[in-house]
Design a protein around this nucleic acid. Sequence first.
RNA 1: CGGGGCAUAGCUCAAUUGGAUCGAGCGGCUGUUUUAUAAACAGCGAGCGCCGGAUCAGCGCGUGAUACAGGUUCGAGUCCUGUUGCCCCGACCA
Length: 1000
Amino acid sequence: MTTETPLELKQTINLPKTDFAQKANLGQTEPARLERWTEINLYQLIRERRAGAEKFVLHDGPPYANADIHLGTALNKILKDLVVKSRTMLGYDAPYVPGYDCHGLPIELHVERKLGAKKAGLPAATFRRICREHAAAALKRQTRDFQRLGILGLWENPYLTMSNQYEAETARLFGCFVERGYVYKGARPVYWCIHDQTALAEAEVEYKEHTSPSVYVKFPLSNDTVDGKAFKREVLGSEDDPRQIFFLIWTTTPWTLPANLGIAVNPNFEYAAIENGAEVYIVADELVGMVADKCGLNRPQVIARFPGSRFDRLEARHAWLERPSLLMLGEHVTLGGEADAETELDVKEAREKSATGKAGTGLVHTAPGHGHDDFVIGKQYGLEIYCPVDNAGRFTSEVEHFAGERVFDANPHIVDFMRERGVLVFSENYAHRYPHCWRCKNPVIFRATPQWFISLDAHTPEAPVEVDEDGRDRTNYTEDEEDAHTSLRELALAEIERVEWLPAWGVDRMRNMLKHRPDWCVSRQRFWGVPIPVFYCASCQFAVTDPTIINHVADIFATDSSDAWYAREAKDLLPAGFACPNCKGTEFTKETDILDVWFDSGSSSVAVLEHYPELRWPADVYLEGGDQYRGWFNSSLMVGLAAHNRAPYNTVITHGWVINVQGAKMSKSEGTGVAPLEVIKQSGAEILRLWVASSNYQEDVRASDEILQRVGDAYRKIRNTARFALGNLAGFDPTRDYVPQSELLEIDAWALAELDAVVERALAAYRAYEFHTVYHTLYNFCTVTLSARYFDIIKDRLYTAAPHAHARRSAQTALYEIADALARLLAPVLVFTADEIWENLPPLVAGNGDVPVGRVPSVHLADFPVVVGERDESLRARWAQVYEVRDEVLRALEAARVSKLIGSGLEARVEIIARDPVYSLLAQYGEELRYIFIVSQVGVMKTENADAPQVRVTVARADGQKCERCWNYSVRVGEFTRYPTVCERCIEALAEIEAEGETA
RNA sequence: CGGGGCAUAGCUCAAUUGGAUCGAGCGGCUGUUUUAUAAACAGCGAGCGCCGGAUCAGCGCGUGAUACAGGUUCGAGUCCUGUUGCCCCGACCA
C-alpha cells in the first residue's frame, strides 16, 4: 500500500494524445509534404522498391499543352494516379511517365493571335520556334499543377510529342504505314480562301450573313439504262411514255453545279412523282406543296410515291453536261432543305431549328469536291473527288462555258445559262449565314485539295486507290504474308474484340466507329507539326514515299528536330546522290503538309513505351475521357496495328464528363464551372482526390460547391477516425504490447474481423478499378463500424483502464491494425493524409522477433494489407444481432432523454425482456452489455410469452452514484476511503496505476 | 440528324445480376455529452383517425416512391418498345 497522496483523478485517465492534428490545414501541409517527397525522391524510391516485380503499364494520354488545367483534366489525371498507386500497392512495378501533346492548330492559332500582323513574312522556322516556346510554357504550368494534385510520376522527364526523339519516331511510324501500302494521296474538300489562296481550319472561319442565289434545277432520269427504263415503267406505266422524269434538286451554290456528280436522297423519306405538263418531277413527298408553290406549278398531281431507298444507284443526267449524276442514299439528307448547303454550319443550324419547308426538295445536289457530306457519300459510292476550281477560285479549262471565271462571279451567269437552257425551275435570293475568312473577311469555298490519306480498306499494294495529278507511289511494299491481305479496318475490327473495355459498351462504340470511319486524312496545311516526309521530283513530279528515305529523314529529326525540314534544302534531307526512281532526276521539292496531330499522339505507344526502359509495349491500360474513342484510342490502334499488328492496349477504361448538378455541361462562361486550383487553394488537393474517388467515373461526374462541401465533410470524418485511433495508440509499442489474436477481447476480435472484410472488399474494388466502391466501403467503415459503434464502445476501456491492462492492450492492438490498414487502403486516394497517418503510427522500436522492426519511410512504399481470410463469420453474425438490440436500446434511451428522465446514457439503467434466441444471445454477454450499450447497468430477463415482442426495453435511472473518474454509476461509490468518489472498477485501475507508478 | 451513354431520397452511391414492402452513409431538423471538443453519439423524415384547448406517447388506418408511358413475366430498378431530359462523339477539351 502506497503512502503517497492520492492521485489527481483526471490525470489517471488515458486521454488520446497525438501529433496528428485535428485540423488538416491541407492548403499549407500538402505543399510541405510534396517538398519532402521531392527531397527523398519518393517516385524513384518506389521504382527501386518495385524493381523486378511484375510490370503494370498505364500509358498516359497526352493532354494538350495549351491551356491551364480544368476540372476534367484533374479528374483524368487523378484517376490515372489512383490506378498507378493502387497497382503499385498491389505489388506491381507500375511506373508512370506523363506526356504532353505539343503540336497542332490551337497552339498555332494562339500564337497567330498573339503575333497579329507581325505574322506575315515570318519564316516558318521562326513561327515554329514561337509555337514551341508556347507549348513548353503551357506544359510547364500543367506539370506544376499536376504535381500539386499529388500525382507521382516521372515529372522531370515526361514525353513531349515535340521532342526530337518523338518527332523522329512519328516520322518512322508514318513510314510503317507507307511500307504496308496504306498511304495514298487523294483529294478532300477543305475550307479554302480564294483571296488568300490558302486552306483554312474550321476554327479559322467566321460566319456572317450572306446572300446567295437559291436555285431549283431539274436533272433528267437516264432513259436508256436498264434501271432507268424499269423505273420509268414504274412511274408512268410504260417506258415509251413521252413524258420525261426529272429529279428536282436545290442549291445555294450554283457554281458547284459543274462539279455535280450525284444526287443524294434519304432512304427513309417518302418521295413523290408529280406531274407538270409533259414533265414529271421527283421531290420529297412532304415538300410537294412548298415546291409547287415556289416553282409555280398549279395543282400538282401526285402520280406515284416511293421510299428514298428505291432510287439507289439510279442514273440521272447532269442538267446540261454530257455526264451521269448518280442517285445515292444518305442519312444526311433532311427535309429542312439546307442539307445541301455548302457549309457545315448551315447544316447544323438547320438541324437545330429542325426548320421545315424553308427551301429544298429533299434531293441533294452532290459535288464531292465541294462539300463535306458530299465528299463522304461520294467516297462511299466511289465517285471521283472532282474539283475543277483552281487555287484562285477560277474554273479550270475543263469547265465548259465558264472556264476561267471566278466562282462567285460565275454564279449569276450560271443561273442565266440554266434559265436559257430551260433546266432552271425557279430561283430567288437567299439570305443565310455563310463562312468567311477570318483574316481577309471574304467568303470562303469548300474545295478539294490534294491530301495524304491512310486507307482503311487497302488490302494489297495493287488495291485501287484514288489518283490525282501527282500520281501515287507504292515503293518497297514488303510482302508480309500474314497481313498483306488484311486491311486496317479488318485488323482493327478483329483486334478490338480482344481488348477489355471498361465499361463494356466501349467495344460497341468502337466497332461502330471503325465500321463507318472514312479513310484517315493525315495531311494538314499547317506549320506546327511533324512534316510529312515526302519529296517530289522537280522534273517529273514523282512523289517519293519510301520508308528508307523516311527513316533517313527521321534520323535527321532525331538530332536536329523536325525544324530541319524547314531549315534545310531538300537535297540536304535526302541521302547523298539520291535520284528520282522514275526519271533519275536529282532535284526535289519538299512536301509542305504536316501530319495530323492525332497521328502524333497515336504514335505515343511506340514512341514512348519502347523508348523508356521502365515501360514496355503494349500498355496494360489506357484511361481517358469518352471523347477519345474517336480520338486517341482510334489513332493509337491504327499505329499499333501498322507497327506491330496489335492493339497497343490490353484494357481501355473511359471516364465520363464533368457536369454540374443540373446535369449540364461545365461552363466557365456561365459560372457553373468549378476551378480545380481554387478548390486546392481553399480545401486542398485531397478534397479533389476524394471527390474523384467518391464518384462513379464511368458515368458523367457531377461537381458543385455543395458536392465538394459534402466531400469535405467526409474527409473530416475519415481524418477524425484516424486521429482517434492514433491518439489512443500513444504509449503503445507494437513490438511489446501487441496482443495475440487468441487473447483478444471478443469485440476487438470482431473489429478485426470487420476490418478484414473491409480490406477484402476494398482490394477487390481496387483491382476492378471501382474506386467509388473503395470510398464507400472505407467511409462506411469509418462512420458506422468504427466511429458510431466500436470506438464509442471501447472509449470507456481505453480511457479508464490502467495503461498496461490487458483489456486496454487488446483494444489498442485492434486500433493499431485498423490505423495501419486504413493508412494503406487510403493511400492511393488520400495521398497526403495517408502518409501523415503512417508517420504518426506508434514507432516500431527494438523488436522481439514477432513483429517486423522499422517501417518504410512513406506509406507509398508499402503494400496493401493482406486479407487474412478464414474470418470467424459467426462472430460477425452474432455481433450484427447484438447491434440490432443496441439500436433498440438507443431508441429507448432517446425516449427517456426526451422525457427528461436522463441526460447522458450513463445515467440510465436498462432492463431488457427478451424472447429466446435474443435472450440467450444477450445472456452470453452478461456484464459486457452495459459497455456495449454505454449505460451504467443492464438487466436481462427472459420471457416465454410468445405474444411479447422479441425485445422490450425499459429505461430507469441508474442506481448509486456517479463515479467521478469513469462517470459510470455504481452503488459502491463511496465505499473506498482512499478514493471516496470512485467506483469499484476504478479502484482496481487506480491500484494498478499506483503500483506501476505510471500514468497514461 | 446519326452513333454511344446516363436517369434510384436534397447529395454521393447500393441492391446478391429477374425475387418479396427499394437500402446505406451524408446533409437537414431535434436533442444528449463535454473524456475524439473547430469533436462524438442519438432520435426523427407524407397523411388521417381515436382527439373535444394544446402537447407528448400509444394504438389503428393507410399512401407513395427507381425520369415518363406501355409491354414480357407468377414476379421488373434490373429484360423489351416508345417518349422526355441531359452528356459524349461526328467540330484538335479529359
